[in-house]
Design a protein around this nucleic acid. Sequence first.
RNA 1: GCCGACGUGGCGGAAUUGGUAGACGCGCUGGAUUCAAAAUCCAGUUCUGGCAACAGAGUGUGGGUUCGAUUCCCACCGUCGGUACCA
Length: 954
Amino acid sequence: MEYNPRNIEHKWRKYWDEHKIYQISNDSDRPKYYVLDMFPYPSGAGLHVGHPLGYIASDIFARYKRLSGFNVLHPMGYDAFGLPAEQYAIQSGVHPAVSTDQNIAKYRQQMDNLGFSFDWDREVKTSEPGYYKWTQWIFLQLFEHFYDLEAGNALPIGELIARFEKEGNRSVKAANGQEETFTADKWKAMSAKQQAEVLMNYRLAYRRTSYVNWCEALGTVLANDEVKDGLSERGGHPVERRAMLQWSLRITAYAERLLNDLDTVNWSDSLKAQQRNWIGRSEGAQLFFEVKDSEEKIEIFTTRPDTIFGATYMVLAPEHPLVDDLTTDDCLEQVGDYLKYVGSRTERERMAEVKEVTGCFIGAYAINPFNGKEIPIWIGEYVLMEYGTGAIMAVPSDDERDQAFAKKFGLEIIDVVDKTDYPGAGLHDKIGKMINSDFLTGMEVKDAIQATNDKIEEKGIGKRRINYKLRDANFSRQRYWGEPFPITYDEQGIAHANAVSELPLELPELEDFKPASGGQSPLARREDWVQLPNGHRRETDTMPGFAGSSWYFLRYMDAHNTDAFASQEAINYWQDVDLYVGGTEHAVGHLMYSRFWHKFLYDKGLVPTNEPFKKLINQGMIQGVIEYLYLMKEKREGYNHFMCSRMAAQKGITEFAKIPVHIDFVQAYGSDESHLNVDSIKKFIDWRPDYTDAIFECGNGIFHNGVFTPNADATDSTLYTHSEVGKMSKRYYNVVNPDDVIERYGSDCFRMYEMFLGPIEQSKPWNTNSIDGVSKFLRKLWSLFYDEKGNFLVAEGEASKEELKALHAAIKKVRNDIERFAFNTCVSAFMVCVNELRRLKCHKKVILKDLVVLLAPFAPHLTEELWELLGEQPSVHLSSYPEHNEDFLKEDSTTYPIAINGKTRGKADFPADASREDLSAAAVDLDVVKKWADGKTIRKVIVVPGRMINIVVS
RNA sequence: GCCGACGUGGCGGAAUUGGUAGACGCGCUGGAUUCAAAAUCCAGUUCUGGCAACAGAGUGUGGGUUCGAUUCCCACCGUCGGUACCA
């Protein structure tokens, strides 16, 4: 009887479904384990072979944990709000909810085809009112809280108001954007609107005028990570900076905790480094410079206060608010010109020409607080308004950018750090001895920084300060397909939270999804929805994609709860995510926002853990091979197109356009010999009729108008393609659909093959070539149960020593490797074991039973079938994962490699229980040793019991 | 530039704390079976020399520590990912 994966897989999937095998309870005696996948955005293209990589890995681990006695939460859902569905709606008029549901149905069908053990009863969709009710609810909590820096957590805004009423804001240490201080009396004297504005400066969700990445073509604001090189990631449209009134989340309040708590999670170094980088903590000093003939003071931030005596000028960002006030009359014109020039430059140009030095003197002078020296004030593009204070003291001797600027504009350079003791040290390194620096002269840089900081604080001209690169997160999108804000504005424009009883605030129906005028959200066109009877108007922006995805893992714990985002019992049972599997592309976006929301909920006492994701595995991407034809850019010999083979490309012709070719036409796809033969060139022309009249220069001839004309010596009529490894994407025609592979080999085979490709963290190109090896393995396993004639071979009887050894070696290896997520070597271990059992002709039930359970996480359908064949009750997952017995692996004798001076020269068997002394004595008598030590003296014998013996001679 | 990861046969990749480098799979070569093919099975397969036994070289390059280094340290080269005028 043959192994027929399709029948087996259908049978068991149906069984699992009917018996709700993977439905799990929030109430169990077993310890909990939470295995989470990053939920997908359901795009129209469906899943390709790369998507399931992480899902397979997490499914294996979830099944392994289930077999090991854990109550495992392993859910799946959809990140269903997003721009593509809205773009599609604009083009086609199909409501995003409809197209999203269609896509979800397709995803679901594809995922079902892979045999995952998800508990689908807990499925979440971020676009469902029952879900986004709680996204809105959490937003309102953020709106109603501020961050108390002294308490180190979030507190209700009511407490802040109470403190303002008692003592104003002078003593309040909170994360805020409030600039003025006020007394209690002043607070009480403020109008309702003024008070509301002040409170806005403290709220964790707040509204402010901010510069945003505005994309005219898409009619919306984009997140930083949606902009690449000044162009929108989607569509590649130009992006400009525009000031808009926007909702923001005060993630900066949590910067320090987000940074420190990275030490408590089990994530990869590179991911932690990315987050640290993004948070960008730097220690330094805030310092005020007085301005000559002015009341104004310029506030700067520096990490090198020690170089203060080398500060020979100052630079303000062009957008700095003081620029207007400080510019002197005789400089008005040049400053005006410069500002005009800066304004004319798009973000893209600024980024492209980073190294170009531009700037302008504004006529004013600042006073160095340490030596009273007057130093000129400039403005320059290289100083960014968004970082620090938007102003710097320039120390050209110790900062490359300042130096370039000073050299270009002929500004004074004073050396203040002597680095002659540190050859090879860069300008930026904080080492050296201070010179030309008054009281600092002679000190090491490290000490000088401390000394200067002390002096700054003593003089009252500034403070030690910590600065972060992390910016508050922009939380407004001018889109339809997102969560509406549960916020209304009264006649004065004061923002009011909707009552919780009014949640969810559902998206109103629309017929046209285009943005409204002035870059407003499409929602603004539903005047009847926006205008409320009490005179209030609704917020028309919607929340960004990361809103719904910042907390979804909590919803799975109690997905149908209508009274809370999840019940406290459920949350206290499941606690946090033990294992999170997903791509690195979310390293600084999703993972940062989720941690922030989680910490806020923790402060509120709503979740028991400080961090949401204990362990994180980043699966690599499965890439595609892109096959290109090269098209000569110049026309040749009167023909419109001239396709060149790879050979021609290698001849040094460089003027090519690359045309991706559909992989179906390519022979030996993905290999060195990828090419189109005459038939496939014809297919290619049918597919791309625009190249009908093209000339194809093949290996040794010309193909044109359906005819191949060989050169004199030609035998080769193929057109070579050039392959590159890249994204698997529709536009490269290289997408491999898992359904096709599964159709042919079965999903157990597909699962094991994806794992067998290599370590999960690694990116690698998809290549179906070697899947046969895994397929062969499964058939070999099957052949332990049935022979070709269909005779059932499984027998009772005691296992032999060798059989036990083969089994237990596999158990040991697989158990160990699963724990460290080395699933590729697990598959190898299975292969070794099955080969050995076949060699031993072992069909014994005692052995096969354990082997089947061992394999269950990897090939769940097949193992269910085999489990049944062994006469067991269905649901292999209810049994327990086998443990290895070291006794079966013990040998009577151990084979030792014998090395002379570290170089292995032979091997010898010794009794397994031989002592170090016995081994040492026996080793020197060996023939190999005599041969290699001939004429030399044995200096030392190094014996590592069980490992090796090394004999040192000279 | 900075931060992080990595570099092993023809290919994907093994080698858990330094201890027989190349497990397992693909591919390739030879053989068995077959009218033939597919499938299956057996043997071989790091490179160089040799019929062979065997010998030499070998984990990006150069150096170091060690009885012994793919593994640890230093410098360099290369690939990938992130980030970018962050004061």
